[in-house]
């Protein structure tokens, strides 16, 4: 067991939705108050469980986007999948003052424990755990070198746009903002080359296809396999 895992079982609790806002045109952030608070590491996730009136339940995993330094609450950012079972409820139906069941913190592998320098490579909602790392690094190690590559479909899909920093490298896969110099494209070797450090870990998170591509490019750029930490969120 690692220090990322609390001793004993990871138990369910009922969290209060204390704030909620649009994080992009297709995603929403929920701030949740935990009656039984725990500490966590940037990169960890929670499991959310919904229960229908007839008792039917659905569970999904969501990464924590906030910094552990913000005690007393956590923030999740949920990308709306139009035909999804759980994400439309969290994005469109749940209201401030409602409650949801969750348990965590989960995962001891895709976590940041203060390593530096840090390369963050995110696609779509994969930016969520990377934002937790970035926020916590800015709070606890502001002089640590960090670079971010963010790949999104369109400007409207970019999460945390005001917070990423001017030097974040943005890639638009469907359409860029007006006046954007290059046509829509996928992640390329030169993106990795421009952001790579000579040492330290790379955290890669997003849809499976994006993570596979980014990890292969990082390997080709000389990152050792054990310095490429991956979190695959699912299809596309």
């Amino acid at each position: 067991m690692t220090d990322a895992t609390p001793p004993g079982a990871i138990t369910w609790q009922v969290a209060d939705v204390v704030a909620a806002w649009a994080e992009s045109s297709t995603a929403r952030t929920l701030r949740l108050h935990l009656p039984e608070p725990w500490t966590y590491l940037p990169g960890q996730h929670v499991d959310v469980r919904l229960t229908a009136p007839d008792g039917y339940q659905a569970q999904r995993s969501y990464s924590i986007g906030s910094s552990p330094a913000d005690e007393g609450s956590i923030e999740l950012t949920i990308q709306r999948l139009a035909d999804g079972e759980v994400s439309p409820y969290l994005c469109d139906v749940l209201e401030v003052g409602d409650q949801i069941e969750l348990r965590g913190p989960i995962g001891g592998y895709f976590v940041w424990r203060g390593e530096r320098p840090v390369l963050l490579v995110g696609g779509g909602s994969g930016l969520v755990p990377l934002m937790s790392i970035l926020r916590h690094l800015r709070r606890t190690a502001p002089d640590a070198p960090v670079r971010m590559i963010a790949s999104v479909r369109t400007p409207g899909d970019l999460l945390y746009s005001g917070e990423l920093g001017d030097d974040a490298r943005l890639i638009y896969t469907r359409a860029g903002p007006p006046g954007w110099a290059e046509p829509p494209r996928r992640l390329r070797p030169e993106d990795i080359a421009a952001a790579a450090f000579d040492e330290g870990p790379a955290y890669v998170c997003g849809p499976t296809g994006f993570v596979d591509r980014a990890a292969d490019l990082l390997l080709a750029a000389g990152y050792p396999a054990d310095q490429i930490l991956t979190e695959r969120f699912g299809p596309t």
């Binding site: 009922v14 229960t51 229908a52 009136p53 039917y56 409602d98 069941e101």
Partner: peptide, 15 residues
């Protein structure tokens, strides 16, 4: 107590 869903949303049966 387990919070139940708001009635506006139906958890659909797995396809």
């Amino acid at each position: 107590m387990t919070p139940r869903l708001r009635s506006r949303h139906e958890l659909r049966l797995p396809r």
